[in-house]
């Protein structure tokens, strides 16, 4: 029964719209919390861990 309900939810257009809206809300919340600056700060300096040095 649970799997049937889950399947119906997955096929529901409203579920898809809701998750999309949720994603946009997360992005806006992240921008409000100034996370973008942290992403930029990390990405414009050579990441020593990524290249296997640090």
């Amino acid at each position: 029964m649970v799997s049937k309900m889950l399947k119906r939810l997955q096929e529901n257009a409203a579920t898809r719209i809701l998750i999309l809206v949720g994603g946009v809300a997360f992005i806006l919340l992240g921008i409000y919390r100034k996370e973008v600056a942290e992403v930029l700060k990390k990405s414009i300096t050579i990441c020593l861990e990524c290249i296997g040095i640090g």
Partner: peptide, 9 residues
């Protein structure tokens, strides 16, 4: 990170 998870969603 809400910003990155939201982008990934």
């Amino acid at each position: 990170s809400f910003y990155v998870v939201g982008t990934l969603i």
